[in-house]
Design a protein around this nucleic acid. Structure first.
Length: 287
DNA sequence: AACCTACACAACCGCAATCAC
DNA sequence: GGTGATTGCGGTTGTGTAGGT
């Protein structure tokens, strides 16, 4: 379907944001809320692409962002979530209130990868480097941490016609598409992963006690302000406001009737699309 | 002090998913 | 159901800076 450019590049600034631009963006969003990124730059008097505005707001200006170092607990949680979800940074970020997918992605690439390698663990497969050959990995993917964490998911038949992004892949690694989507971390050198280890099952003998870890309490964070929650997203996916009763299966995008029986916890009237992605947890909200 | 290198992170790009008509 | 518009995600790149020589 041919795509028009998201903005008129000839009339937009690029590169680092200035303080003035930040102030304009903040002021506008405070006054009008998030949403309609396409028209926001013009309305806010910014010579920026809407995507750029959104990114700046989401990754840097949002008031609920937690700046500062990651704790060791954060590290471990990220590692375990990565083992479970692969490079689904937005999903991982959803479990770390106040952190952005971009921040976690950067942190993974600059710190955690090295940390794992220093432990002799392959950051892609989460297996010992020496035993991390593709041949060994090919032994199977059916009893990964995912199924350990969600035993009820294990026997589920491969979902039909799930979209690539549907996180059910992450929760149901027994189907091949999981390996191609959620389980396709970047290649060792950090370059594109799109063609990565598509057929190599990840961490078949991974033992990360994820069932324990995924039920543990997560660090709390200040409640998100209404403005902090994407108004656009909120209007489309307002079920996220009711996440306190939602199980992780639902968090992961499992649709009603797919593999999770937590239907009662899925309040969305918006249909399957509303299950697309989980959102950052509210304060005191656990998975 | 100057240069080089590695690191950290902000920002961009391309594409898929989703929405609206 | 088809199509274009918009949003959001993941991968990659660019740039500033700290540390080493």
């Amino acid at each position: 379907m041919g795509r028009s450019p998201c903005c008129e590049k000839a009339h937009t600034n690029k590169g680092a944001w200035t303080k003035e631009e930040d102030q304009r963006l903040i002021a506008y969003i405070k006054a009008h809320g998030e949403g309609c990124w396409r028209s926001l730059p013009k309305a806010a008097g910014l010579l920026r692409c809407g995507k750029s505005c959104r990114l700046r707001w989401m990754n840097y200006l949002r008031p609920d962002l937690k700046r500062g170092n990651f704790t060791d607990d954060d590290d471990e949680l990220i590692i375990k979530l990565h083992a479970l979800l692969g490079n689904k940074w937005s999903l991982i970020a959803g479990q770390l209130p106040g952190r952005t997918d971009n921040e976690i992605k950067n942190y993974w690439n600059t710190h955690i990868k090295r940390k794992l390698l220093s432990r002799g663990i392959d950051p892609q497969t989460h297996r010992p480097v020496s035993a991390g050959s593709s041949a060994a990995a090919a032994s199977g993917l059916t009893t990964t941490a995912s199924t350990a964490a969600f035993p009820s998911l294990a026997p589920a038949p491969p979902p039909q016609q799930h979209r690539l992004h549907n996180p059910v892949h992450a929760a149901a690694p027994s189907n091949a598409s999981f390996a191609r989507s959620a389980a396709s971390p970047p290649s060792e050198d950090g370059h594109s992963s799109s063609g990565g280890s598509s057929d190599a099952p990840r961490c078949p003998d991974l033992n990360l006690d994820l069932d324990l870890d995924l039920s543990m309490s997560l660090p709390s964070s200040p409640p998100k302000t209404p403005a902090a929650a994407s108004s656009t997203t909120a209007s489309r996916h307002h079920h996220h406001q009711q996440q306190k009763t939602i199980c992780l299966c639902y968090h992961l995008g499992v649709r009603n009737g797919d593999v999770c029986s937590c239907k009662a916890a899925a309040p969305s009237p918006a249909g399957p699309r509303a299950f697309r992605f989980l959102r950052p947890l509210e304060e005191g909200q656990y998975i």
